[in-house]
């Protein structure tokens, strides 16, 4: 009940996205409340990433509406920069700024967007770098780090903004199997601490473990929506069943 009193942070209302005749998303509709950990699963090309990119406004949906605390993020007076500072994003390919060190990466947003002082930004950066276990590497350049290390820095960079919601776009898909664990552990910890997250992932065990809610997407629509137990143990939809069987038998 507390959830409903606080109201949703994000309200995704019937959004659709088409590239020409190709419909990538159709009638996607869900809400995100504080402390939700929503995992979005589904086959490649089912529109998961596009959905996430629409939420961050890296893409503009062709129909529907997204509301942040009741305000449309597509309205003309909307402060996009402030919104993006509150709704962070972690990418599949890390996208750390190549011209900056680890520390500079984690201070760029806080100093340039949030206009915090250097000392304050340093404190934040080092604090979150310590959390992801990358504090000793502050002087390294991104290309000198392994994929797993880069992704952990990218998470610290997003956390340094002290976001309200963090979006993860297949954060472990570009990693070697042995590096997947280190990134998932960080994310698991964040989930335990109550950070609101929307995670697109192919890590089923992780999704089952940490999420409060799972969305199964198929061909641009949410085919099934429920608790992890409902989705993984008692899937009702035929497509969900097929998808999960394939994953388990892999």
């Amino acid at each position: 009940m507390a959830k409903i009193m606080q109201g949703p942070i994000l309200k995704i209302k019937h959004i659709g996205k088409a590239f020409g005749d190709h419909k990538v998303l159709q009638d996607i509709d869900f809400e995100t409340y504080p402390k939700d950990v929503i995992c979005i699963i589904g086959a490649s090309g089912s529109g998961k990433s596009t959905l996430l990119r629409c939420i961050n406004r890296l893409e503009t949906p062709t129909s529907g509406e997204i509301e942040y605390h009741g305000k449309s993020i597509f309205s003309s007076g909307f402060n996009l920069s402030a919104y993006r500072a509150r709704v962070g994003m972690v990418f599949q390919s890390f996208n750390l700024f190549q011209n900056m060190t680890v520390l500079q990466n984690c201070m760029a947003g806080t100093t340039k967007v949030l206009k915090k002082s250097k000392t304050e930004a340093y404190e934040l950066a080092i604090n979150f770098l310590r959390k992801v276990g990358m504090a000793p590497y502050i002087n390294a350049k991104p290309q000198q780090l392994s994929g797993g290390q880069q992704q952990r820095v990218a998470i610290a960079r997003a956390l340094a903004m002290e976001p309200e919601v963090l979006l993860f776009d297949e954060p472990t898909s570009a990693l070697d199997p042995e590096m997947v664990g280190e990134v998932l552990n960080v994310m698991r910890e964040l989930a335990c601490e109550g950070l609101t997250m929307i995670i697109v992932t192919h890590e089923m065990a992780f999704a089952k473990d940490v999420s409060t809610r799972v969305l199964f997407m198929d061909k641009g629509v949410i085919a099934e929506d429920g608790t992890p137990e409902e989705i993984f143990d008692r899937p009702r939809n035929q497509r969900t069943k097929e998808f999960l069987t394939r994953f388990i038998n892999r």
Partner: peptide
């Protein structure tokens, strides 16, 4: 991805250009 990451933390087009794209 460099531009997108800069946008995603809220940088303006100008900030993205000056601190991320142009140095590279």
């Amino acid at each position: 991805g460099q531009t997108e990451a800069a946008m995603a933390i809220g940088m303006s087009h100008w900030q993205t250009m000056v601190s991320v794209v142009m140095p590279q």
